[in-house]
Simulated scan of single mutants.
Amino acid sequence: MKLGILLCDDHYPESIPTYGHYDDAFKRLFQDSAINSYSTFRCFEEEYPNSPDDCDIWLVTGSKWGVYDPDSWIKAVSEFVRRCDEAKRPLLGVCFGHQLIHQALGGRADKSNKGWGMGVYPIESMNRDQGSMSSRPTALNLIACHQDQVQSPAPDFSVIAGSTFCPFAITAKENHILTMQCHPEFTPDFLIQLVERLREKAGDKVVDNAIRSIKEHGGGDRDYVIASMFAFVEHQTLEQ
């Protein structure tokens, strides 16, 4: 299986010597899955694939941009997402990618009046009838870093997990789209250095609380989300 990474940002330059480029995080995440090759398209630099058929599965990454920003590359990725959906080509969305997929397909994402979701936070509501993820616990602790959220889901999406703070935390459409507000590709050490870089923007209290939550919970239920992404990939393998 070949994964097409629609890269919507890159790590801070100071982070790259230690952690590599952003797409490297996803390559590490999927290294034990059915995916055995990758193509990265630096969409935020206007590098795009030609067709949804170029790869078996597509992934829309996180980004510092908002899906509502007027940049031409965001519109181009949104149009590509619509083409993938029409062709039933499998799609994964993470953070910004989760929001963009919903907005591209008729939902709405915007800055949340609830403020920053940063660190490891709880998801208390799990839809146990949704089959797009592996067998589910009743609650999750998820790594996250965002201000924006999906405000209105796109039509035909099921909510797999949510909370009062983030009602649409993990969603799916039929069997070909899986999206999540969390960052399963982030490790605890990566997240700590990232939130430190956001201290001036987010404020000391938010960042200190985030670091405290990471030290308390580590990666939280990151392994569960990764296993569920693997299950999604495996399902696509069987379908194809």
Results as ranks from 00 to 15, higher is better:
2 K>A: 09
4 G>I: 12
4 G>E: 11
4 G>R: 12
5 I>D: 08
6 L>K: 10
10 D>V: 06
13 P>I: 05
16 I>V: 15
16 I>F: 05
16 I>P: 07
17 P>V: 03
18 T>G: 00
18 T>P: 00
20 G>T: 09
22 Y>D: 02
24 D>S: 08
35 I>H: 02
35 I>A: 06
41 F>I: 09
43 C>D: 13
48 Y>S: 12
49 P>F: 12
53 D>K: 15
53 D>P: 02
54 D>F: 12
55 C>F: 06
56 D>F: 06
59 L>Y: 00
60 V>E: 07
61 T>R: 04
63 S>V: 13
63 S>Q: 15
64 K>M: 15
64 K>D: 11
67 V>A: 10
67 V>C: 14
72 S>W: 06
74 I>G: 10
77 V>N: 11
82 R>C: 15
83 R>H: 08
85 D>P: 01
87 A>S: 12
90 P>A: 10
92 L>I: 15
98 H>E: 02
99 Q>L: 05
101 I>S: 06
103 Q>N: 13
106 G>N: 08
107 G>W: 11
110 D>A: 13
110 D>F: 08
112 S>A: 07
113 N>L: 07
116 W>D: 03
121 Y>V: 00
122 P>H: 14
125 S>H: 14
127 N>P: 05
130 Q>S: 15
137 P>R: 15
139 A>C: 12
142 L>T: 06
144 A>K: 00
144 A>R: 01
148 D>N: 14
152 S>R: 09
153 P>F: 01
156 D>H: 02
158 S>R: 00
159 V>C: 09
160 I>G: 08
160 I>R: 07
161 A>W: 01
161 A>F: 07
167 P>F: 00
168 F>K: 08
168 F>W: 14
169 A>K: 07
170 I>Y: 04
172 A>T: 07
174 E>G: 01
174 E>M: 00
175 N>V: 01
177 I>E: 00
178 L>K: 05
178 L>V: 06
181 Q>M: 06
195 V>N: 04
196 E>W: 01
206 V>K: 00
208 D>W: 00
209 N>M: 05
209 N>E: 12
212 R>H: 04
213 S>P: 10
216 E>L: 13
218 G>P: 05
219 G>Q: 11
220 G>S: 09
224 Y>F: 14
225 V>H: 02
226 I>E: 05
229 M>C: 07
233 V>T: 10
236 Q>R: 09
237 T>R: 12
